[in-house]
Nucleic acid binder design. Structure first.
Lengths: 299, 299
DNA sequence: CGCCTCTTGTCAAGGTGTTGTACAGATACT
DNA sequence: AGTATCTGTACAACACCTTGACAAGAGGCG
């Protein structure tokens, strides 16, 4: 996932939410980026550069000073490190499978500090998309599988969910902010698995959207009301279990007449019939966020 | 494991709840910290330094003289610590009623950035205890009242809950860490109001406890299992509705024979009969955390 | 008790470091 | 032509630095 379409500074600025002046300042002061140049001298950025800028922004939002944030963000992508002292030890490479295994191990043992440490390290080193799609989503799958095989108690599942929910909602801070299209996210009545929906929200946020999160167990009437108040570009309803969505078919078709509507989650893919006019998101949250974002741009 | 994220003095101050002046004084007088310096001469602290400052604060809160506290804190490097902010960090006046009103206004309007900004300001100005007891708890009450009067839609309530839950769980990061007595926190089956329980957990954590949070809708069997695995000093079960607790009476009495057990929340205070040997926490979460913490110390 | 000293948290003044933003004049791209 | 971007410089707001001082409380001592 490296060089596809080189971005000029304006496009990078829009996608990352950082002004062009500031991007140049970060390059000059901290060597955060080393864009190639067009024949005429314009900066050309890669998608990796975009991720690095986002990582830097995140570190700043967490309270680090710009210089320190840049040092961390620079370290993240091994591709172009300006001054790499050869004897350095630290710099853990990003190993998603190891991270996931560590996460499973610590949460099973009710080891909150351990799990948080794993997440800390991941956040320092990985981009948000990578973290979500390569660690969090597989982790949730593994959790679900072990749960079905009876290898996990309710207590362990609760502990892990609450821990992860806390971290993800922490990353979600400010996701209602900005200028992009708005999306309302909710689970249908009775459905309480909202982690996948949060991941989807984060991925969508990362593509410039604004998120209004209603979360689990939202009555359809309330959803309609919120949609009227907010007038979102997209409504997403997510369910892990098919039986939470099935009773809503007619209401969903009705909703789809006035709003762009999507249903998501395992419950959406196992539905017998898809309500007319409703987008069905069956893939993993990050991929689907990518797709939805593209659709909205062209549509 | 020791993630290196160099903090400047302001950030260290915010995270530790100790003013920058005092941090410099402690360095000068007791050599508590030996921060590296940036090229420009700014102090750069590590996360270990943060732990050391917290440890020092804790020793002072326990009555030690600053010099003794420093000597102890200097010696110990790993583990440690609750957060006991001894003073304010800023000079902006703290107006809890205004803050609560702002919070109500912004969350009702689905204004996520606005609400987050209010919380940001509060966190910069108030101690955790003050924030919880003077803003969050009254806010939750107001939410409940408006809800009963039908002035709030489910969507608004969900939106507000999710936003607040995210922030509180963010503050909860690392609450399983350290050396203090452990408490398991859970809601009984069917009960999904966990915000009060999170507040209680934060207040207890602020008094040196370690928290294991299972959250809403936890089957009693799982609770028992977790209690066996963790061997906590206290088990807390919280419910907003009395009918979620009532069916458990006999199981609770049984649990109380092997563990110190407390029930909390509005549902606990409206129970017809209190199970034998069970502590009943009917006051606000912060006050009750104070009480429980004292009990455990003397008992 | 009054007086003194030590401790400890806080504050102020005057200077430096850091960082986001702005502008001007020139050049590149479409 | 018109927009986007380039380089270089400047600047204002804020965070931080050092030095020095001060006030409230604890405790010793005549």
């Amino acid at each position: 996932m490296s060089e596809d379409a080189p971005l000029r500074i304006g496009e990078l600025s829009r996608r990352a939410g950082v002004s062009p002046e500031l991007l140049r300042a970060w390059e000059r002061r901290y060597d955060l980026l080393q864009p190639t140049r067009s024949p005429g001298g314009l900066r050309l950025y890669s998608l990796d550069d975009l991720e690095r800028v986002r990582l830097m922004s995140r570190h700043i939002a967490e309270g680090l000073a710009a210089r320190e944030a840049a040092a961390l963000a620079r370290r993240a992508s091994p591709s172009a490190e300006p001054t790499t002292p050869p004897g350095r030890v630290s710099t853990t490479p990003f190993d998603p499978e190891l991270a996931r295994a560590e996460l499973v191990r610590t949460t099973e043992a009710f080891d909150e500090p351990g799990a948080q440490a794993v997440l800390d390290e991941l956040l320092a080193v990985a981009t948000l998309d990578a973290l979500l799609s390569q660690v969090v989503v597989p982790y949730l799958h593994e959790l679900g599988e072990r749960w079905e095989r009876g290898e996990l108690s309710v207590a362990q599942e609760h502990f892990a969910s609450n821990l992860l929910r806390g971290r993800l909602l922490g990353l979600a801070r400010g996701w209602g902010n900005g200028e992009g299209p708005r999306a309302i996210l909710a689970c249908p009545p009775g459905e309480r698995h909202d982690l996948g929906l949060i991941v989807f929200g984060l991925a969508l946020r990362n593509r410039g959207w604004r998120i209004d999160f209603l979360g689990s167990d939202t009555p359809t009437a309330s959803l309609v009301e919120a949609a009227r108040a907010i007038q979102p570009a997209l409504l997403v309803i997510s369910a892990a279990a098919q039986e939470h969505l099935a009773p809503l078919q007619s209401r969903l078709e009705e909703l789809a007449r006035t709003h762009r509507l999507a249903i998501a989650g395992a419950g959406a893919s196992s539905l017998d019939s898809t309500p007319a006019g409703v987008l069905v998101l069956t893939g993993d949250p990050v991929t689907e966020a990518q797709r939805v974002s593209g659709l909205a741009r062209t549509g």
